[in-house]
Amino acid sequence: MTAIEGHTPTLDPEEARRLRQERLERIGRWLLPLAIMILAIWLWDRVCVWNDIPKYILPRPGVVLQTLHDDAGLLFSSLLVTLRITFLSLALAVVGGVGLAVLFAQSKWVEMSFFPFAIVLQVTPIVAIFPLINIYVDNQTTKLLLCAWIVAFFPILSNTTLGLNSVDRNLRDLFKLNGATQWQQLRYLRLPAAMPYFLGGLKIAGGLSLIGAVVAEFVAGATGQSSGLASRIIEAGYRLNAPRLFAALILISLIGILIFLVLSLISHLILRRWHESALKQER
């Protein structure tokens, strides 16, 4: 064995420092939020104990967890109702937003004609639109679905339209020089280029669809056994059942976080091999 073969390569101090920093960042990305969350829950519990706060005003975390266990049947059945509205509205927002964005990309006249109406839907509060929906729509589920769709629709439309219009002009000219039709440009150039923008809008719309579903239940005043989590919050508030109210809020928050994480994972898996934003995460 030669001296060169037996030599173990060593990292220079700068490279070693960079690797340590990356390792600490990977650990801290999960450890720090977890530590802060545990500290916040502990402080919540201590504040209740130190100030002798009754549970109908501010329940202790243990009481909320016990309520979540005891009322699991009621709360999780309502959760399924809310999730159904959330995912249906998100699916409709994706289909409608992408479809309309493609039409906008194919014709500037269509974009100039209809985009202002999309903006009007976005900037008008849903609580102001709902009375009209309540007049013209009889089915309760359809009312909730329409409200949630209005909230989730615009981020998909706006981001996808921006992506389709952000194609490199030189690449577009190259496609035209090679005789590509508009639909060929759309399929092989503009849609792939718009994918990061669409996925960014999807992550936004995922959270907004959940918010829209919950807000729609609030403004609709939905009640009954087949109602969503918002109705459980309203009911618990009227009955001063703070533990159930907090349990429903925790479920909504956890589902919102889960939706964001799943959509972020989907975005990363799609973009990781070719887009710069995902390639940076791979390094």
Rank of each mutant, 00 (worst) to 15 (best):
T2D: 14
T2L: 08
A3R: 14
I4F: 11
T8S: 13
P9E: 12
P13Y: 07
E14P: 01
A16S: 12
R26F: 11
R26L: 15
I27E: 11
G28D: 06
L31Q: 01
P33D: 03
M37G: 12
I41Y: 09
L43G: 08
R46E: 13
R46I: 01
N51T: 11
N51G: 12
N51Q: 15
D52I: 08
I53A: 09
K55R: 13
Y56M: 06
P59V: 00
G62M: 11
V64A: 10
L68W: 11
L68E: 05
D70M: 10
D70P: 01
D71E: 15
G73M: 09
S78E: 02
L80V: 09
L80Y: 06
V81K: 07
F87G: 04
L88N: 12
A91G: 14
L92I: 13
A93R: 08
V94C: 11
V95T: 04
G96C: 15
G99F: 01
A101T: 00
S107L: 01
K108L: 07
E111Q: 14
M112F: 11
S113T: 15
F115E: 08
F117W: 13
F117G: 05
F117L: 14
F117C: 06
A118P: 03
V120S: 06
T124I: 08
P125H: 10
I126H: 09
A128C: 12
F130T: 12
L132V: 15
L132K: 02
I133G: 05
N134V: 03
Y136R: 04
N139L: 12
Q140F: 14
L144Y: 06
L145M: 13
L145K: 01
L146I: 12
F153K: 00
P155E: 01
L157A: 03
L157Y: 03
L157C: 03
N159C: 04
N159I: 00
T160D: 00
T160S: 00
T160E: 00
T161C: 02
L164Q: 03
L164H: 05
L164W: 04
V167N: 08
R169T: 14
N170A: 10
R172G: 09
G179N: 09
L186H: 11
R187I: 13
R187D: 07
L189R: 07
R190V: 06
L191I: 15
A193D: 11
A194N: 03
L199A: 06
G201M: 02
V219H: 03
V219A: 07
V219W: 04
A220H: 09
A222Y: 03
A222F: 05
G224D: 10
S226R: 14
S227M: 09
S227K: 06
L229C: 06
I233Y: 10
E235H: 10
A242E: 06
A242H: 05
P243T: 10
F246Q: 08
F246R: 05
L249P: 07
I252Y: 06
G256F: 09
L261T: 00
L263S: 09
S264Y: 01
S264R: 08
L265P: 04
I266Q: 03
H268Y: 15
H275N: 13
